[in-house]
């Protein structure tokens, strides 16, 4: 299976954990090579979070992840739509998808 190209965006302060880069274009290797114990054929959000944690996350993983999902207060958008409408962690990534992680703001 060829490498999968997707866009990963961060916003609302979440980018501070990722070298302050808001927009990235990333190339994911074949999932069975990267995570041999995973028995799936394609990348889902669940594996993407593991990949992000190991490759992009610079500090304080507890401010981004909680268990195998994201922490409360981070909105995950798949092509500008709430991930709940796509089945959250089980959504299978398609080429050139845009996954956005927005930390909700509370200032005023």
């Amino acid at each position: 299976m060829p490498a999968l190209k997707i866009n990963v965006h961060f916003g609302g302060g979440a980018e501070l954990l990722f070298d302050k880069i808001k927009k990235r274009e990333v190339e994911l290797p074949a999932v069975d090579k990267y995570l041999p114990e995973c028995e799936k054929k394609g990348w889902t959000i669940r594996e993407l979070l593991v990949w992000i944690k190991e490759n992009l996350l610079r500090e304080r993983p507890e401010l981004f992840l909680q268990g195998e999902s994201v922490r409360p207060g981070i909105l995950v958008l798949i092509n500008d739509t709430d991930w709940e409408l796509y089945g959250e962690l089980d959504y299978e990534l398609q080429p050139s998808d845009t996954i956005t992680f927005i930390s909700t703001l509370h200032g005023g």
């Binding site: 302060g13 507890e62 401010l63 922490r71 409360p72 207060g73 981070i74 909105l75 709430d82 930390s103 909700t104 703001l105 509370h106 200032g107 005023g108």
Partner: peptide, 25 residues
């Protein structure tokens, strides 16, 4: 419905510690 659980306190920023540009609000 959108945020069933409150975020951890250390993940919440405020204008007095993180700053804000006036025209944004």
């Amino acid at each position: 419905c959108v945020f069933p659980t409150p975020p951890p306190p250390e993940a919440v920023g405020s204008c007095s510690t993180n700053g804000v540009a006036g025209p944004i609000p």
